[in-house]
Nucleic acid binder design. Sequence first.
DNA 1: GAGCACTGC
Length: 733
Amino acid sequence: MSAKEPFYGFVPRMVSSKAAQQVMNGETNPFTKKPYSGQYKKILEARKKLPVFGQMDEFYTMFNKYQIIVMVGETGSGKTTQIPQFVCYSDLPHTRGKLVACTQPRRVAAMSVAKRVADEMDVPLGKQVGYSIRFEDMTEPGTTFLKYMTDGMLLREAMHDPDLTRYSTIILDEAHERTMATDILMGLLKALSRRRDDLKIIIMSATLDALKFQKYFGSTAGDPAPLFKVPGRTHPVEVFYTQEPEPDYVEAAIRTVLMIHRAEDPGDILLFLTGEEEIEDACRKIKLEADDLMNQDPSSVGPIACVPLYSSLPPQQQQRIFDAAPAAKGDGPPGRKVVVSTNIAETSLTIDGIVYVVDPGFSKQKVYNPRIRVESLLVSPISKASAQQRAGRAGRTRPGKCFRLYTEKDFMNELEEQTHPEILRSNLANTVLELVKLGIKDLVRFDYVDAPAPETLMRALELLNFLGALDDEGALTPLGAMMAEFPLDPQMSKMLIVSPEFNCSNEMLTIVAMLSVPNVWLRPPNMRREADAAKALLTVPDGDHLTLLNVYNNYQLNRDDRQWAWNNFLAGRALAQADNVRAQLQRTMERFDIDLVSTQDERKLYVNVRMALVCGYFMQVAHREGEKNQYMTVKDNQVVGLHPSCGLDTTPEWVIFNEFVLTTRPYIRTVTTVKPEWLLEYATTYFDFSTMPKGEARRALEAVYNKKHGKRKELDNESDNSTTRKSKKAKRT
DNA sequence: GAGCACTGC
């Protein structure tokens, strides 16, 4: 290195903040050797005002000394943008052919932070600083040394390189969110830190659970990992509670919004509710009542704009949350914007200008019941951490107020400290397969930050064993190794891999892709009949899986017609996404030399597809009990009905289903009719009579078995043709 | 005769 080299004399991981700042304040960009731009200097001045910048010295002392650091930084501390840069100046990954990784739970965050940091470092995005998310790799091998990425992406990389050798430092950001991928990564990194003493690890989190991470990542001697703490930069938020519990939180929320509108100073309102329907309904009511108020007394109440926000809203409409509040009418008071949102506004989206938050204290949360193998969404009380996060949304631009629609006593005594991490609320089939592929031998004794219920692990192991992904000893089979490579639930990767045997891998690729994206069916409230009619035209009566195939094929045939999706009440965004997913899955198929084949004869094709579906979803079979829309899931004996969105024109005796949903009653959704012979043939071990509970389903299967094997002839059963027609006439009345 | 909380590969 020459004397002109800005990093001259720098030794990796022995760099002081003084030296680093000298380079930052110099004239030459040490990473590009080009002179710094004017923009760089301007941004640098702003960076210097961030709380974390003032603690650079403390950071380097710790970073240089310890292998693992837990960092706590509240919103506005600048940790996500600054810490990875600080690390680069001491770690000097570019001089050693290494990378610094910083993970994010969300794609947009990985992209936007990478862009910001590239600007701050005065380099083009995708060169020295890049990002890597599914479907998009904005990095340049050999050049990129600071990479923002989704946590799931790093987990995928670990499957191929368990020692993550490319990285010199790994930073897990937003660890407090406890996504499944971050939780698994924490377990892997803890073990890896003992194999690779050259690897540095930083766990970054919002305040609350730092001690948990410190203990988890502590030394074997029991000392907690060192803590680096940076204050945030937000405005104070005054919190109010109700005196009594509110029996109807939606009604109370609307009342509170109107109270704020009448009595409080100007400033926008953010109201948290739990779902689309609730939100649309509340928006209508607020608008109606606020308009009434203004008409009654235009001199004291201003106009109001009520904006809904939830993820399935088209991006264009989501943008409305950033519109300015409506202007005052004449000399009247200024207008006010009310955003009524799901949890999306708690973490994923920030809206500036919010001064008032109304928090009823509920959100929809995923829960998993391993006993009946069902994930469902339940409206549940939020955690204290969540309530604090919501309140904080009122103090981003100036001091604000938060109205909690529950008592202070309930807040103190009833709310959990933290939302349960995802790993405790999910079906783990996929995760277990990933862990086994990662070489984790004993899943029950894996060092989880929070260990899932043994029953949940057992359910996952059982499923993977039935699918043939794990052998009876729990070891990965060649099939399982292949399945783990697909970004899919194991049932889906299984049916994809076997689909060439049924001559329908092209079709199965499509179906799996369609099952992996959000619902494609649109049903605007004022056009339900038209939407249903459009759907009926695309429906294949043998099953919803085939209908999805048909929808995709028609979408492809009409690619040139930009209006096609809209005219058919289909979500164009979801279809485009399916296209993307399909291409990615196809690449994985090709990598494994799995044949891409089709059946030409449509009637045979549909049968072939249905048989292949059985190979993956044989554990999700329901048998009709009686004549009406009443089914019983095989083996766990849950009474379910076909979901009203189901397109079957009959109620067949045997169906497989993709989803079990628990709403007004238990429903099975995305359903296709199958033949009992297929169950016996393609899932022999699962449909072993000795392990099946007695009942109609078992009797019917036994009859099929005996008939085939000529043991005993059933006289009263014509088997799979015994479907009953649903009365279309009765349906309409 | 209902509804996708939110992410991610």
